[in-house]
Amino acid sequence: MIHISLYKKINKSKVQSQFQLEFDLGDIIGITGPSGKGKTTFLKVIAGLMDCEKGRIIFNDTVWLDTTSKVQLSPQKRNIGFVFQDYALFPNMNVIQNISFAQNEKFEKEELERLIDAFEIRSLLKQKVNTLSGGQKQRVAIARALVQLPHLLLMDEPFSALDFRVKQRVIDYIMHFQSKHHTPLLINTHQIHELEALTQHIYELNDFQLQLLDMDARIQEKAIVTQINIEERTMEVELDRRNYVLPLKKGVVLGEQIHISIE
């Protein structure tokens, strides 16, 4: 069982934001919400990279943080795999050196080969990371976090630069990794549909606290785009013979089938 209870002022706000979660080993937790509300900050507090005003983190009976009794385990001792939003790959190393630097000796060689193929990075192994595209860097960053065999995986916008096909392969591998190692996983993203493929436990960080989203109330439906109004930046979609006006999505074309959430 992992218990997290954190209080921190975000972006010089006068009100403390609350971040309270309880989950089990093997759980995948999605965190969404508008930018600037503190999603990244809370992940960094969990990792021990930032302080908070008040907080408590207990990981399987081990106290990582307790501000009351002034306990704070160093980031080195928490064994957390972290996928940073800006990837944080080491520029002086090539791809395989980045992965090897993080690799836990218990992470088997065959498993590494499988991961390299699943992430389609075999041809990039000897390349310096500065020469990679955003999507390639993101895959290397996720691979690097996984080979660490962490106790807890924290991912900050981990799929933002991946195209649909590659994203699916990466998610498939993460699911396989999850089922094998039972590593709890916290994913931050502002794109809720990315989380829906991974978990039903989705929370929203808004109004200074974390709230569980009622997924049943957000049924995803396929609707057809019937009209596009570029000037007003809206689109009209048809679903079950009813028309809805929604904000215009980038790249949408007339007649396209898109997913929409009905509250």
């Binding site: 960094k44 990792a47 990279l49 160093s74 980031p75 080195q76 001792k77 928490r78 064994n79 957390i80 795999g81 972290f82 940073f84 800006d86 944080a88 080491f90 520029p91 002086n92 630097f101 993080a102 660490q148």
Partner: peptide, 27 residues
């Protein structure tokens, strides 16, 4: 040196001296 590079190495369990020699100075 971006702070995240040092943070990433810390989370891999690397000691301060290893981070300095393997991550910070080469960059």
């Amino acid at each position: 040196i971006p702070e995240d590079l040092i943070h990433a190495a810390m989370l891999m369990g690397k000691k301060e001296i290893t981070i300095l020699l393997k991550v910070v100075l080469p960059n």
